[in-house]
Design a protein around this nucleic acid. Structure first.
Lengths: 219, 219
DNA sequence: GCTTTGTATTTTGTCAACAATTTGCGATTC
DNA sequence: GAATCGCAAATTGTTGACAAAATACAAAGC
């Protein structure tokens, strides 16, 4: 039996907690696109000084969630559905394909089990109408693929797009037909299980397309 | 004739100047990968306080040039040539293709003239052996394509990869055969001039490949 | 000699005050 | 009454001081 060890302490700085809370507020729709971010207001509400707030703003600006105009104001960004579909989603597809191709040998039963558990929870979430949980599960499914690689550039690229994708889906959830969700991801997972790169590529491409088609107002 | 107007004042904050100078120091190789960034040291050298330095660090972290470990240190990132070639360059290709496809009507003589001027300067730079200028010109050529769109997501994505690409090329310049440079870009521009999307796509794909093949140690 | 412990130093993280800039608004002028 | 000006308030930008954490290193114990 493995010897007992303590878990690593979190050791998160205030800045990271602020970034996290501010990000969640945006993703959960408590701060809507166009809403002005006043540093002092948020600092008081959180009970911290403006320093960590400002650093968080710089980070979220890069994540595409905030727009900052020097000396003027910073506001919550608005996303263009078309840009998300035609720029960010294909980038996600691309890095996913890169990782799967390169780390094919890491596609083991442990991985498949984890993915299957996510899909099963999707099924439950669809049944319960737990829509926001579905968005999280979708992100989780795709992120866990990328985490196999744990390559810096992969994760950095992912982080620079993931929250825009998440916000887009949260915002447009009413326009999506969620019933497909479980089936689409199951097909993707089944393709992974074959370990056949041709089949996997086809499945990823199809997954991308299916997302596209679900968007009612797609151009 | 157009009426005379004054140019917009720069109105750059200290934070932005610090970010710029720090970025240039990294791109010009004055701060090598692994080098530790000490906030106080840089603040003293620049004659500013640590606030703007810290905000610049947050930004450059997101640009992939710095790595920050909370409560410990931040160091200059090292880039994996393979990741740049297989992740970042295809992303560049992708957003370029997206922009050209969508803004085909903006491909006018003014645009072609600007691009031709860049290529002409490439020719001169190759002749003079002005290598670092060549890297700038390559970036400039591709950036001016994206600037046609002035779409937020396009520019944000570009900014999150451009400096990694620039650093990669600066670093690996000795391994590239620069003679191709002018010819490759001329082919791309000629394809744009046809306004034929099939030809343009072929040219972009070929351009991506040619970059790939120039890399002597490519896997 | 090697490990462990305590301590000084260095460095990062946070804060609260101050400066610079923008914005809102009322007074003034034509 | 519309435009301009000047001032006050609000907000962002910057700073220097203080707090917390990590590191380096010497001393103590085995």
């Amino acid at each position: 039996m493995a010897e007992f060890t303590f878990k690593q302490q979190a050791n998160t700085s205030l800045r990271e907690k602020v970034t996290h809370d501010l990000r969640e507020a945006i993703l959960n729709g408590h701060l809507l696109p166009g809403a002005r971010i006043k540093e002092m207001e948020i600092a008081e509400q959180m009970g911290v000084s403006r320093g960590p707030i400002r650093e968080a703003i710089r980070q979220l600006e890069r994540e595409g969630l905030l727009l900052s105009y020097p000396y003027k104001e910073t506001v919550v960004a608005d996303l263009d559905a078309d840009e998300v579909q035609n720029i960010l989603m294909p980038i996600r597809f691309h890095i996913e394909w890169f990782v799967v191709k390169r780390y094919l040998d890491k596609l083991d039963d442990g991985f498949f089990g984890k993915q299957q558990a996510i899909i099963d929870e999707m099924k439950a979430a669809v049944a319960n109408g737990a829509k926001s949980r579905l968005v999280d599960l979708d992100i989780l499914f795709h992120q866990s693929i990328l985490e196999m690689a744990s390559e810096r550039t992969v994760m950095l690229t992912w982080q620079s797009i993931v929250n825009q994708i998440r916000l887009h889906f949260s915002k447009n959830l009413p326009f999506y037909n969620l019933d497909h969700m479980e089936k689409d991801h199951q097909e993707l997972l089944d393709a992974f299980k074959t370990k056949d790169l041709v089949l996997i590529q086809q499945a990823i491409l199809k997954h991308l397309d299916s997302d596209d088609n679900l968007l009612c107002f797609a151009k």
